[in-house]
Design a protein around this nucleic acid. Structure first.
Lengths: 190, 190
DNA sequence: CAGTTCTTAGAACGCTCGTTATAGTAGCGG
DNA sequence: CCGCTACTATAACGAGCGTTCTAAGAACTG
């Protein structure tokens, strides 16, 4: 006898809703009860589908990572050089539609710097993927070591500018800084 | 009648110890009980000197801010241009002796991006001070708007590189990226 | 329909948390 | 020494937490 089959679609549906909820709420204050209430289910349902709280958070971040990486490949993959790829990255990041996801991303970063083991895999993958996209954009003619160094700098600068605007809300100053950064970058990419 | 005088020195002593403890532990897991145990006092003593938990955390961050700002002024204040000031900033930041404080700093950042009201003042002050030091380093001959934009970029890049090395531990790649960034910066500062 | 497994919910357990109540001790002015 | 205030500690309260227990419907196979 086989019994009722596992409903993978149900799990995915709950997980997507949980990621949306986590993007709106404060990461540190997530609990079985708050997520369950937002999704209109009981805490037992979450336990059944995800196990422990750590595994629920891990699943949420894994799903968030998939979204972020898919966006980054879609956006920066087709650009011919570092400068235009960086500009595409910045335009995408500074779009306020991305801010809930990016706020969650930086909240996880904040936790990870003080407890690396917990979310290290998440950060390594996202960071490495973004750098890989920007290394690829520089083409095969650039020294790999140079390409990695420049990609690391560009990712760091964009992340720092995003952190600035997300924390201070001073959009005008940060946008001006981004413009200066991107225009400085252009003549170096040839 | 006057009664026993308030012991301000005792409060400062407890606060300094609390900042050290917060730098070693995970910010999100700080509690009256954990801080009290680390300091060898009771939770009541902390309540007496600091009031609520929010005000204790606020006092800890205020003290951390004083330390960070004092260091930044001491380190970058005497440099003749943006490139050397930026290099001094990076050398200081990438010294592992600063990492506990910087880990705490970024942990607070992670919380602030999702709940701006709580720690907004802390972040505004630290960020604005660092930018001001780097604006001053560029001298009076640079357009103020340009100087602010470039200072914002430099602070963002250094913060992004720090976040990278603190989260991934990949010191070699980040140090190479920092070297590329700083050498690119040099010819532009004249 | 019977048997089996998946899905969901409500209630409870043990724990930690911030905060408060109570009380004893220490240092000051009169 | 007395009155007053600062300082510190123990104990407790109520709330929220992750997790487990128990049990009831739902979907599938035979």
């Amino acid at each position: 006898m086989v019994g009722r089959p596992v409903d993978h679609r149900r799990r995915a549906e709950l997980l997507d809703a949980a990621v949306d909820h986590a993007s709106r709420e404060v990461f540190a204050e997530l609990s079985f009860r708050s997520v369950a209430a937002a999704l209109g289910v009981s805490t037992t349902t979450l336990v059944h589908h995800f196990g422990t709280k750590d595994r629920l958070l891990g699943s949420i971040l894994e799903r968030l990572r998939e979204r972020l990486v898919a966006s980054s490949e879609e956006i920066a993959g087709e650009h011919p050089d570092l400068a235009t790829a960086a500009r595409a990255f910045w335009d995408w990041s500074s779009d306020e539609a991305q801010w809930p996801s990016l706020r969650l991303f930086f909240a996880v970063y904040g936790h990870a710097v003080q407890s690396p083991g917990t979310y290290g895999g998440f950060l390594d993958t996202v960071g490495a993927d973004w750098i890989a996209v920007l290394v690829a954009a520089q083409g095969p003619s650039v020294e790999p070591a140079d390409a990695t160094a420049r990609a690391t700098v560009v990712v760091a600068t964009i992340r720092g500018l995003l952190l600035d605007v997300l924390a201070t809300g001073d959009r005008a100053r940060v946008e001006e800084a981004a413009a200066a950064f991107l225009s400085d970058l252009a003549p170096r990419s040839t």
